[in-house]
Measured scan of single mutants.
Amino acid sequence: EPLWIRPDAPSRCTWQLGRPASESPHHHTAPAKSPKILPDILKKIGDTPMVRINKIGKKFGLKCELLAKCEFFNAGGSVKDRISLRMIEDAERDGTLKPGDTIIEPTSGNTGIGLALAAAVRGYRCIIVMPEKMSSEKVDVLRALGAEIVRTPTNARFDSPESHVGVAWRLKNEIPNSHILDQYRNASNPLAHYDTTADEILQQCDGKLDMLVASVGTGGTITGIARKLKEKCPGCRIIGVDPEGSILAEPEELNQTEQTTYEVEGIGYDFIPTVLDRTVVDKWFKSNDEEAFTFARMLIAQEGLLCGGSAGSTVAVAVKAAQELQEGQRCVVILPDSVRNYMTKFLSDRWMLQKGFLKEEDLTEKKPWWWHLRVQELGLSAPLTVLPTITCGHTIEILREKGFDQAPVVDEAGVILGMVTLGNMLSSLLAGKVQPSDQVGKVIYKQFKQIRLTDTLGRLSHILEMDHFALVVHEQIQYHSTGKSSQRQMVFGVVTAIDLLNFVAAQERDQK
């Protein structure tokens, strides 16, 4: 057995438009009618409502009807409940999964919650491996369901041993009777949507819809739904939504950006999952974080739909894509998950301010006199920076000697690579993860907040409520011999709460 199987392995699926269902090699399930009293909570997966979006479509000038398939009504709160249950049931049916076995899954959280929910009911041990950027709410729900959680670096490539995929496979090879159901490759993922989600949409719309818009992560949702719609409703256009920084969209030119990270969760990847059939997507749109969270908040405030950030991405694209539809036509959007997962993220004004998705003037509360002053007023001194090749031991000596707790790590040209902190280095040394002679590049981390000289002290204040420091950066445009230009970030300084307090105190003292 291989040590790991690539999540982007070539698909062996034989589905073709027009091929009889009787030739399918898979076990198919028909939607079942729910009894009045459910035998367990797993029976509350599927049969989610279709809700008309009344205000947002009109606000953006849509002539067509805009409908939302509300997947956050599933038992675990997301569309991923469907595939989690289906993968477990299919693994039980073919004898792969037996009582007492362990389920391991690399996930952005929602599939993990679905699997942990099913594992709690069915009696399996469950280990979820997820990147650090995923919300604390997801972690809390997983723990409450009895799952064990392993976190991995957000910026690790999918084929790196440190990625959530790599760590999951390492655990599988170490733990007896453990299984990775593997949402990236498992046919049960798109089949769950082909058999149930798509049929529900067709039934709820009486077979009449002209466009379907869905955000894409593993691709199982859009693949399964689109294949069924292509068979039953061939005139329906399928629109895929991919965040900026991901590479799922086609044509490839759409993916060209210097951005590699994004805040919206559960969609987009740096590889093409095996289950994603991009041939059934008629057109791709890219979405960005700001519009995703703005539209998610709009869905909550104006439509009462308590959905997550990827739902915002989907609707932001839908109001663009559906401009081509006329009166009497219908566009369906998939709202994948609930706001429950993001209470401390985009639902929080403070978080939105820190990330730059909300401006101070958007909030009406009274601010102190210094709130709208610029960061450049602080008069920061030149920063202490270190090269990635310097040793951890030497870096600790320098920081202690100069009285700093942290320093930016830059390359020879001064471009920011990340940050090192005294606390992080000492804990890594004590844990045996690094040696004093190791290069400081081994303990770089990139989960820090950046701020510009033109940003306000109010925004800085919000950042420092949650973080010990902020890195002050400025952009530099560099022209190359080819005539092309590129933008790079340079370090201007490091600012802490002490710097802000000293500035405010000094100004008030001078005024007296």
Rank of each mutant, 00 (worst) to 15 (best):
I239T: 02
I239G: 05
D242P: 01
A249F: 03
E252W: 13
E253S: 10
Q256M: 12
E263T: 05
E263S: 06
G266P: 00
I267F: 01
D270M: 04
F271D: 00
I272D: 05
V275Q: 02
R278E: 03
V281T: 10
V281F: 09
E290I: 11
E290W: 10
A292H: 05
F293R: 00
T294W: 14
R297W: 00
I300F: 08
A301F: 15
L305S: 01
C307Q: 06
G308C: 00
G309Q: 02
S310D: 05
A311I: 06
V317G: 10
V317Q: 07
A318F: 01
L325N: 01
L325S: 01
Q329D: 03
C331I: 09
P336N: 04
Y342M: 01
M343K: 06
R350K: 14
W351Y: 05
L353W: 06
F357A: 00
F357S: 01
E360L: 12
D362F: 14
K367Y: 10
H372V: 15
L380M: 14
S381T: 15
A382P: 14
T389A: 02
I390P: 03
C392P: 09
E397L: 12
R400T: 03
K402E: 12
P408M: 00
V409P: 04
V409S: 05
D411C: 15
G418W: 05
L429M: 15
A431R: 09
K433E: 14
V434R: 10
V434W: 05
S437M: 12
D438G: 14
Q439F: 15
Q439A: 10
G441P: 05
K442A: 13
K446D: 07
Q447I: 12
Q450M: 13
L453A: 07
T456Y: 11
T456Q: 03
S461K: 05
E465D: 14
H468E: 06
H468P: 13
V473D: 10
H474P: 11
Q476T: 11
I477Q: 08
Y479H: 03
H480L: 09
T482L: 15
S485C: 15
S486D: 15
S486L: 14
Q489C: 11
V491T: 04
F492N: 12
F492S: 15
V495C: 13
A497P: 02
A497T: 14
A497G: 11
A497N: 09
N502W: 08
A505T: 13
